[in-house]
Design a binder for these strands. Structure first.
Lengths: 372, 372
DNA sequence: CTGTTAGCGCCTTCAC
DNA sequence: GTGAAGGCGCTAACAG
């Protein structure tokens, strides 16, 4: 009974014309299932989608046929064309994936979004706005977009999506027409934080800011950098601080990390040397602040006795520092959830309003009266 | 020359029958563009895709027509149905997004994947294998899947994808038929690390492991936990350590974090009390190890004088600890890149081989001879 | 170089 | 409760 040619027929392609691909391994379609079950395509469709009425008998007949053909359900691509929906939510990151993931605030936001999407959506599609990504953002399959603190690279992409009726939500971006905004009071909060320092008596203050533009290098904060800045968050936080300290100077970090904070901190504290040294440093993120503290301590300065350091975010960086950082606590996860909810509502055809969150001042142990 | 009715025609929907929706705000299709440019649909398609030859004249005529209609390019959904490709790579996480993102190894892997995909793919779609996600993994649009250290929840999903001809890559999962494997020598590396401790003279050793199953709670490591374990990485690392210390006991952490390590460390060091206390603790991740060290120090133990602590991963946790952790360094980003490359090749119809990586022992300052 | 012809796989009217 | 069409928007073959 060992029929070699039969084995061949199972394992090798036939050679009679286009039957090759058709009869070979081609995946069965709903039509195949319908035919085998002896029902029409529409009936079979109902058996799977559950929409519409169908007798239990036919239903199970269809499912059995599907099982026999090893058909596991409708093709998502066809389904998404027909329904005009893919269930996918695009999340547009400003940066390379790695940079974004290194930032606890971004992660918290992503988590918030995913919490609200879990229900019936098809997942989060990560996209980047820089470089090559620009083309993929125009050709990728998704139903709604969330921008995470994005620069205005996107102007054109936004136009494309608007035209495609793809609802958009921007978290802390500059406002765009037709883009729902989830905002944070960066400027006001930063001003409040500066006021706190001013109230303590600080007059010589410096700052370490988040990146201001696409460049990712440690720079001195001068007028030209500010003039060319594109990142709304950094701009706003700086503007708030300058409401209190109009001449506030310092350095622009290459990214939001403790190591960058350390490097920037050394520059800030080294630069002036002796009497030119600031009595307080405002870092635009907690990670930066932690680095600044490390830099200060490595120079033999005690915090807050010799130097006050404040951050921004309320990142609760576990184990990263023995200090309790004075900072503005922002509701990061909540921002994400608000965005997720907004997406859901927009996709349902509703018209949710913009959302604005505020920060809370947390006074820890890293700020105190100036020493000198 | 101000013709009101003309303005109306531009901005308001017509009212002649079903023309309303057609002419109103419905997004134009390639067919509309073709008609307006006076060419056929296929020609218009070529003008956009660049595939095939077309005269510069027609091409620009088509593009102009598109511009006038505010048509920005083919609908990704239709395109993906027609071509059988969406360009999307699905990344299946084991856990809730937040947990995954908190783990530096996962992030490094994701970054590695994205590095190799940037070229022409449409982005990474994040999916989860647990709970509701199971259904979305079956209905989401993507061309290839990467599993990140996944439990066998997936058996059925894998079958579905296999049937759909969706290539799959598993990073540190147990091997599945037809799933390309990107492996790490967890067991051997763990054994080598244990041998290092044994060589130093340690005989009383305990461990803090990564989660063993879907439960996320701090548990004592007993036979029943091991018997019900589903997470390959944890199982392998434990097995390797037990090659050297067959009776190795300890605790199972709820997740890979320094805080969990701290909690587990307290249990381990508290449990025995006095003479029952181990002289060395093997943590299954660097984050856990850092927490264990914190726990030890909070009990007044010095590392490594009173207690040796080793980790696993080589996470280079910035600023998190003053110690230089003794650990097994794994090439996390490389694993991701290998997976990304494998995906690319699989989608190109090639048959890349499995990949296996090995860890390097890094001897830092947290391991030394036993004290007693 | 351009047009014609067929679907990709599904779902949603509409009749029956 | 079920079946028969038609089309979502696009592109790959093939003709001309």
């Amino acid at each position: 009974m060992t029929r070699l040619w039969d084995v061949g027929a199972d394992n090798q392609p036939h050679v009679d014309g286009d039957v090759v691909t058709k009869a070979g391994q081609a995946r069965p379609t709903l039509a195949d299932v319908a035919k085998r079950a002896g029902v029409s395509g529409s009936t079979a469709s109902i058996a799977f989608s559950g929409v519409g009425s169908i007798s239990e008998a036919t239903r199970s007949r269809v499912l059995r046929a599907a099982d026999e053909l090893r058909y596991f359900g409708p093709d998502p691509r066809a389904r998404s064309l027909r329904q005009g929906r893919s269930g996918i939510v695009g999340v547009v990151l400003e940066d390379r994936v790695l940079h974004s993931f290194r930032d606890p605030m971004t992660i918290a936001v992503l988590d918030g979004i995913s919490q609200e999407l879990d229900a019936e959506h098809g997942g989060m599609l990560l996209l980047t706005s820089t470089g090559v990504g620009e083309s993929t953002i125009q050709s990728a399959v998704f139903d709604a977009a969330v921008f995470l603190g994005c620069s205005p690279h996107l102007r054109r992409s936004i136009e494309v999506m608007r035209q495609r009726n793809i609802p958009m939500v921007a978290i802390e971006g500059q406002p765009f027409d037709g883009v729902l905004s989830v905002a944070l009071d960066n400027r006001e909060a930063s001003a409040r934080l500066a006021a706190h320092l001013h109230g303590l008596g600080h007059r010589a203050v410096a700052t370490v800011t988040l990146p201001m533009d696409a460049r990712r290098e440690l720079l001195e904060l001068d007028a030209s950098v500010v003039a060319g800045a594109t990142t709304a968050v950094s701009i706003d936080r700086l503007a708030g601080a300058r409401e209190v300290y109009p001449a506030l100077g310092g350095f622009v970090a290459a990214n939001s990390s403790s190591d960058e904070g350390y490097a920037a901190g050394l520059r800030v504290l080294g630069a002036g040397g002796g009497s030119g040294r600031p009595t307080a440093i405002m870092a635009q993120s907690d990670l930066l602040a932690v680095g600044v503290i490390r830099a200060a301590e490595s120079l033999g300065l005690r915090v807050p006795a010799d130097l006050t350091v404040v951050g921004f975010d309320g990142a609760r960086i576990e184990g990263l520092s023995d200090h309790d950082l004075t900072t503005m606590v922002q509701p990061a996860t909540e921002k994400g959830r608000a965005a997720g909810r907004a997406v859901t509502e927009l996709l349902a055809g509703e018209h949710p309003p913009d959302v604005a969150f505020t920060c809370d001042l947390h006074i820890g142990t890293t700020s105190g009266p100036p020493h000198r």
